[in-house]
Design a protein around this nucleic acid. Sequence first.
DNA 1: ATTTTATATTAAAACGTTTTTAGAAATCAT
DNA 2: ATGATTTCTAAAAACGTTTTAATATAAAAT
Lengths: 337, 337
Amino acid sequence: MGTIKDIAQKAEVSISTVSLVLNNKGYVGEETRKKVQQAIQDMNYKPSRSARKLATGKTGNIGFIIWEGHFYDVEMFYSQIFLGMEYAARKTDSYVILTTVKEEFDPKKEVPRFLKYNDVDGVALAGRVPHTLVEYLDRQRIPIVLIDYAIPGKNYNCIQIDNYHGAYQAVDHLAKTGKKRIGFVGGTYFHPSIKERYRGYRDALEANNLIGNGMPEEYTFVENVETSPLIGEKGISVLLDRNTDLDAVFCCNDPTAMGAMKEIQKRKIKIPDEIAIVGFDDIPTSGFCMPRLTTVSVPKLALGKEAFNLLNEVIDQPSEPPQVRTIGTFLVKRESA
Amino acid sequence: MGTIKDIAQKAEVSISTVSLVLNNKGYVGEETRKKVQQAIQDMNYKPSRSARKLATGKTGNIGFIIWEGHFYDVEMFYSQIFLGMEYAARKTDSYVILTTVKEEFDPKKEVPRFLKYNDVDGVALAGRVPHTLVEYLDRQRIPIVLIDYAIPGKNYNCIQIDNYHGAYQAVDHLAKTGKKRIGFVGGTYFHPSIKERYRGYRDALEANNLIGNGMPEEYTFVENVETSPLIGEKGISVLLDRNTDLDAVFCCNDPTAMGAMKEIQKRKIKIPDEIAIVGFDDIPTSGFCMPRLTTVSVPKLALGKEAFNLLNEVIDQPSEPPQVRTIGTFLVKRESA
DNA sequence: ATTTTATATTAAAACGTTTTTAGAAATCAT
DNA sequence: ATGATTTCTAAAAACGTTTTAATATAAAAT
């Protein structure tokens, strides 16, 4: 493969000079630079990663942590975020290495391999993730950025979805199409994103003068478990049984909406005429179900890219104060609403 | 963090000795070993990956390549294989780094980053992947293993799903429940897995004396494009229009089955009474659709684990002849058949 | 009793970079 | 023309391991 030494020899310069042109540093004469670049080209030379990393002290890896359960979900949400990070990584010389964690995290029992062996320069965490893990990372002074998650009362770097406006838009759309009694179905209420979506829901109701007569209290179903199609089924059941005048429902995410849709169809209720439904996330399934789901689309790739970039900035400037960046959403109108 | 030098100092031995106990190599006296291990414990020492890799010449990474399109699929099939690899990797000191490739691959234009910079010791490729890429890897003498794919006429290390028996079981189940006119819907016929599934389908028909009267020719829909729900819709449409006596269909995978299901329901045909349907893969969605899909389950984690292990063997013993390992499947009986 | 062989330890070389330091040559200001 | 900068290049140290070769002792075989 050839080493930096071979290049130096071929270009008739010192190793140091080769290194300088390689890294665009210091002063290098124009013709010397050309000679070196030519040699690099000719020999198809690629610097050794390990050697480089050993010399610089960086690992060149960044870690990506998600809850294991998301790998068994119906949704591809987190995979796409991961892909976004990978795309961003391609413009750098870092690799993204992924690992999953269990619901609970105890640093005394087990920490992810790449943390244990100091093999990452920083880590991105997506979705709901154990607080103890985030605190552990913070304590170890490992640069982190949270994706689509935040820990109440704590201030970390994070990439947020614009949950509030997304939900607002969705519910506003329902109202504008004439729906009056709009329900809300959600899970894990303590998840900040869900809270924001509820806020958007409420404010959109208010803006459309739909508050009152039990709205939204009686039309809200929230249970403190991981969101899933099952929660959707259960939620819509409760709402339908409680409010005979329900004519639309905003589900806190697409899997929940899928479940709700299933239950609604089971009861032979027509979508969207009798009950309109809108979700949140725009996972691939939403485009294939029947009827296709109207939903708030989240630019997942952008989420990953931004996370990667922010993380890199944090790694370079560790002392900067935590940043929050918000990624916009947009409503995808399909047949369910 | 402490280096090997600090350990040597603390344990009052040489650096070499520390290295020997670290790697369980050579001769080391019992008490010396204890002293060293104690020091390692006390200082919570972790060897530097870069230094180690530089010295050994290995990268400690293995690459995982899939077609980019699979990240936009409805299915989590490949994500789970990836997770299986990650699980296996945890028992070693290797990391799995993932990248995607486009449908076409031209080494002159662009090669995956980790190949370009020699940052992996070997690579696993899952699903349909450009032939030119596989040949490129082979030419570069990079150890590879294919997962759920094979290139006709070529002999590579690979982990296969038992497509034949899986399909056979599925179709046999349909026959045993009294179905007589069983269709087949598939895509990308040149994909070896699909071919095998078709073979299993045919043989099961034969074993149940269902060949004849246009079976299976008239009851087969195959189109040479990537499998998808759309292919399922189209396939079942053609079959239904052509054969009024169709009473069951075996779809070459779950996404296809999803599409078929949608179309069948659109035509107000009852599943499974009028038309029974069975898929292949057991992706998460299959458990949530309505009715839930009977399908052939593929142990995806096992697939990934085996791939990782085989790849590691190949890396250690590059001159061994190519191996094929087959992972069994099992039928998950749900409501669609 | 002497040679082999097995066990135990270490010094030193090697892995391929980046970075620091130093020195020379060219340019500039006086 | 002299000294001060700026531009250019190279030698050498540093990064933290593994591996090879060397040396020393203990045990076994002749």
